[in-house]
Amino acid sequence: MPCVFLGCYEGTKTYHLMCVETKRIIISRDVVSIEQSKDIGGVPHFEKEKNVVLHEEVEVEQPLTFSRDTILNETRMEGVQSESTPSSSSEEEFVVSNDNPSSEPSQDVPRERPQRQRREWLRDWWIATKEVERTTVAFLEEPQNIKEALTCENSKEWECAMQEEYDSLMTNNTWTLVPLLVDRKPISCKWVFKIKQGANGEVERYKVRLVARGFTQTYGVDYNETLRRLQRLHLFIVFLHW
């Protein structure tokens, strides 16, 4: 069914299209764009196969007015039925993320994951959410403070990384130890622990950084001026595009 692409709305996963013949607005995700340029009445168009109605179609009373600027691309809608439905074979593709080390320590009891039925029109979103889940699991393993770092199972690595950071600060001559003046209050600092992951989620590096807690600084005492004018990002982008 030939359609014109009207746009996508923020916060939804749908495309809004207008059917060329019936002048109806269709909200759907089952859209395939046609790369070649074809014009119907001077307007680029989309197509949707007739027998598929996935979502409600909204009747429009008054004649449609839309700006041509909203037409971003051309698409062809494709019926789901005409494709072979991805079934159990593709299910296996998504149950692989368990090879992450130490994410689940109790491996003697294999947990049954609930097999969820995937919505057909959301299948391209599925992989993305899986990725997010996996990164979140790894993220939770990072110690939040020095105590956690030195008691967790990777304490050797963390200790090593801390020593490395400390040594580099020392070689940079970042500070000298002095007695504190009576009227001054020292600012605090903390260690930040990060696991650097490779493309496949494997641990690449244990990274530790010392950060000063800038919010404990007092204006006029610990700092006076802060930022230079760095807001000219647009100019930077202009140069990049050149």
């Binding site: 020095i146 030195l150 801390m162 400390y166 940079n172 001559n173 970042t174 500070w175 000298t176 130890l177 002095v178 007695p179 504190l180 003046l181 001054r184 209050k185 020292p186 600012i187 605090s188 600092c189 903390k190 260690w191 950084r209 010392l210 950060v211 000063a212 807690r213 800038g214 600084q217 610990d222 700092y223 802060t226």
Partner: peptide, 29 residues
């Protein structure tokens, strides 16, 4: 700028001392 000594890297016998910073650190204003 004066900063507390680092957790885990306290100077032995000089716990009352503080770090006087020369170079910049992450997190400073």
């Amino acid at each position: 700028i004066y900063m507390e000594q680092l957790q885990g890297f306290m100077h032995q016998g000089g716990e009352h001392l503080v770090c006087k910073l020369h170079n910049s650190l992450y997190g400073l204003k």
